[in-house]
C-alpha cells in the first residue's frame, strides 16, 4: 500500500525555478506518467520523490509517512535510471542481488528472488555476465529486474526506454506494462515520449515550465486538453489552432465559417481541432493545400487556413493537388476553445 502525495513542492536552483509549487497525488498501484519536454522539471520532480534531490519547499509523503527528510534508502522506493546504471564491476546476478544483500536477506531468499525476477525479465541466461557484455536492451532488463527484486512499494522510472532503438522500445514498452501491472507497485514514470505516456499510463501528468498543467487519464488529456499547451504538445501532428472572432448570438467566426462557441468577454478566442477530426465537406473551412504527405493508412495534408498553418489527416483515397483549395469540416463535438490570455480551455455550451 503506497499512495504518493506531493504537497506544495518547489525547487529552485539559484535564480532558476525548476518547479513551482507542485501538488500531485498518485493512488496506490497507479501508473502515473510525468510527461513534458526536456527542461520542464519532470526529472527534478522524480528525483525529489526518490530523495536524490531535496525540495526547496513542500512535503513528500509515501505510504502515509512523510519522507522528504529521509535518504533514498529509507523511502521504500526502487528506481530505474535513464542510462540503466548497471554496476559494471558486478555480474548481472550480483546487480540484481545488490539491494537484497543491503537488506541482509538470507542467501536462499536472495537466490530465489534473483532467479524469479530474472525469469520475469527473460534474462536468466545472462546472470553470470558483466554489464560490458550486454546489449542496451539487456542492460535495461537488468535495471528493471534489479528494481523489481526489491519488491518495492514504489518504482520510479526516469526515461527508461529513451536510450533504446525504436523497435526495441516498442517491445520493452509492452513488456514493462505487463510486468508492472503484475507487480502491484505504484509507478511514477518520466518520459518525453507522448506515445509511451499514452500507452503506459493510468494517468498522465503533463508538465510545462515547472508546473503540472493537467493530470488525467490519457484519453482525457488527448480529447480535452486543459490548456492550449497540452493540445499543442500531445498528438502527432498536434492540434490545430485558429483565431475565432466574436460574431452574433454567442457564435464565433473562424475564417469565413461561423461556429457555436463558448461565452467569453474577449473579442477573439482560439478555436482548436485535431487533424484527424476533419473531413472534406462543402461547408467546411477553406484550406489551400501546401504539402501532401502520404503515410500509408492516411494522408497528412498541410494547408493554410486564413493565413495560418493547418494540418489535416485525411483518407488516402482522396485526390489532392498542391495549390488547390478544399473545404474541411471539423466534427462539431471535437471542437475545443481556449482563452487567449490564460490559454486555458473554455467550456462551450
Amino acid at each position: 500500500m503506497a499512495e504518493i502525495s506531493i504537497r506544495n513542492v518547489a525547487k529552485r536552483f539559484g535564480d532558476f525555478t525548476a518547479l513551482h509549487s507542485i501538488d500531485l497525488t498518485v493512488a496506490d498501484q497507479e501508473f502515473m506518467v510525468l510527461l513534458g519536454a526536456s527542461g520542464c522539471g519532470k526529472t527534478t520532480l522524480l528525483r525529489i520523490i526518490a530523495g536524490l534531490e531535496s525540495p526547496s519547499q513542500g512535503e513528500v509523503w509515501i505510504g502515509g509517512g512523510r519522507v522528504d527528510h529521509l535518504p533514498p534508502r529509507q523511502r521504500g522506493i526502487a528506481m530505474v535510471f535513464q542510462n540503466y546504471a548497471v554496476f559494471p564491476h558486478l555480474t548481472v546476478f550480483e546487480n540484481i542481488a545488490f539491494g537484497l544483500r543491503m537488506q541482509k536477506l538470507a542467501e536462499g531468499e536472495i537466490q530465489h528472488r534473483v532467479n524469479r525476477t530474472a525469469e520475469l525479465m527473460h534474462i536468466e541466461q545472462l546472470l553470470k555476465r558483466y554489464s560490458g557484455q550486454l546489449s542496451g536492451g539487456q542492460r535495461q532488463r537488468v535495471a528493471v529486474a534489479r528494481a523489481l527484486a526489491m519488491e518495492p512499494d514504489v518504482i520510479l522510472m526516469d526515461e527508461p526506454l529513451s536510450n533504446l532503438d525504436a523497435l526495441l522500445r516498442l517491445e520493452m514498452r509492452a513488456e514493462l506494462k505487463g510486468v508492472l501491472a503484475e507487480s502491484k507497485t505504484t509507478t511514477i514514470y518520466v518520459t518525453h515520449d507522448q506515445v509511451e505516456a499514452m500507452s503506459l499510463a493510468d494517468r498522465i501528468a503533463v508538465m510545462n515550465k515547472g508546473r503540472i498543467v493537467q493530470a488525467e487519464k490519457p484519453i482525457e488529456v488527448y480529447r480535452n486538453p486543459a490548456a492550449r499547451f497540452v493540445g499543442s504538445f500531445i498528438g502527432n501532428p498536434p492540434m490545430n489552432f485558429l483565431p475565432a472572432m466574436k460574431a452574433e448570438n454567442g457564435s464565433w467566426r473562424v475564417a469565413d465559417v461561423v461556429f457555436k462557441g463558448p461565452t467569453s468577454e474577449h473579442d477573439e478566442v482560439a478555436f482548436a481541432i485535431r487533424p484527424e477530426d476533419l473531413a472534406p465537406s462543402g461547408t467546411g473551412l477553406p484550406a489551400e493545400v501546401r504539402v501532401i504527405e502520404p503515410l500509408g493508412p492516411h494522408v497528412l495534408v498541410t494547408c493554410e487556413v486564413d493565413g495560418h498553418l493547418f494540418r489535416a489527416v485525411l483518407d488516402s483515397d482522396l485526390e489532392l493537388k498542391r495549390g488547390q483549395t478544399i473545404r474541411l469540416a471539423p466534427s462539431p463535438d471535437r471542437i475545443r476553445w481556449f482563452d487567449p490570455e490564460t490559454e486555458q480551455s473554455l467550456q462551450a455550451h
Binding site: 536524490l52 533514498p72 535510471f81 554496476f87 537488506q103 534489479r146 526489491m150
Partner: peptide, 24 residues
C-alpha cells in the same frame, strides 16, 4: 547514477562509495 542507484538500493553514502565507486 551508479552511486544514486546504490542509494536507492539501500546504501548509505559511505556504503555506496565503498561498494560501487571504490572498486571502479
Amino acid at each position: 547514477e551508479l552511486e544514486e542507484a546504490a542509494w536507492t538500493l539501500g546504501c548509505t553514502r559511505f556504503q555506496a562509495f565503498h561498494k560501487v565507486v571504490l572498486p571502479l
